[in-house]
Design a protein around this nucleic acid. Structure first.
Lengths: 111, 111
DNA sequence: TTAGACACCTAGCTTGGCTACAGGTACGCT
DNA sequence: AGCGTACCTGTAGCCAAGCTAGGTGTCTAA
């Protein structure tokens, strides 16, 4: 029904989060902000997507969590990329690139 | 569990099918072949994804089906893009491009 | 006569988005 | 003192779309 839907494509969210935390540990809220910022508001990750995703990544040991103080003096859960996570990020980026290439082929191929 | 999974990204399949039939009516089996062919084997659409997708597209009136003879003399259901479908294809392509751009931004942005 | 390509279909599982809640802290404004 | 707003985390439960695995039937070539 919705003409305008901003559904993240399944599976991309994990990669994006991993990429963001690859630049240094960050807490969930900040990760979402960063994604929105860098993508010029394209990605507006709802909390109901964000937190489950983070827990998923933690369970898979792609990130590790630790409570620390934020710059504003509050406590927040900082997520740090693990070695496994870095590996996974590579895999996902490669996968994304291949997908994008394949889609591109289909979209460009006239006939 | 699977280290290697070729899950189509959610939502891309519709767009790809629409794009293929935009070039002229084709039956399901042939659509899958074409996708595989053009994408150099990247897309290997399982029938359990293909046929439900086609029915979905038909239900949404993005394609119309008609039984016709194939070149091999057998009957097959040919799908043809409707006007609504053409519109939808545009929307989806645009959406894909925006997504790809946004992902690209995240992946490229160093810091 | 049998294997494999052609051609269609469905049930039922899984996954990961989403909405809609719920909870709590700190700050600034009136 | 009270209120709104940003900050920060979380869950339950819905839903869509992919998947596996199974089924039907035809035609052709080895």
């Amino acid at each position: 029904m919705s003409l305008e839907k901003n559904d993240l494509h399944r599976g991309t969210l994990d990669m994006l989060i991993l990429k963001i935390v690859a630049a240094g540990p960050l807490h969930g809220y900040a990760i979402a902000q960063r994604l929105q910022q860098i993508s010029k508001d394209y990605f507006q990750v709802p909390q109901g997507s964000l937190y489950p995703a983070l827990h998923r990544l933690e369970e898979r040991e792609w990130v590790e969590a630790e409570w620390k103080d934020t710059s504003t003096g509050r406590e927040a859960k900082f997520y740090k990329l693990t070695k496994k996570g870095r590996k996974q990020l590579e895999v996902e980026v490669l996968g994304w690139e291949k997908l994008a290439d394949a889609v591109s082929l289909i979209l460009r191929t006239a006939e």
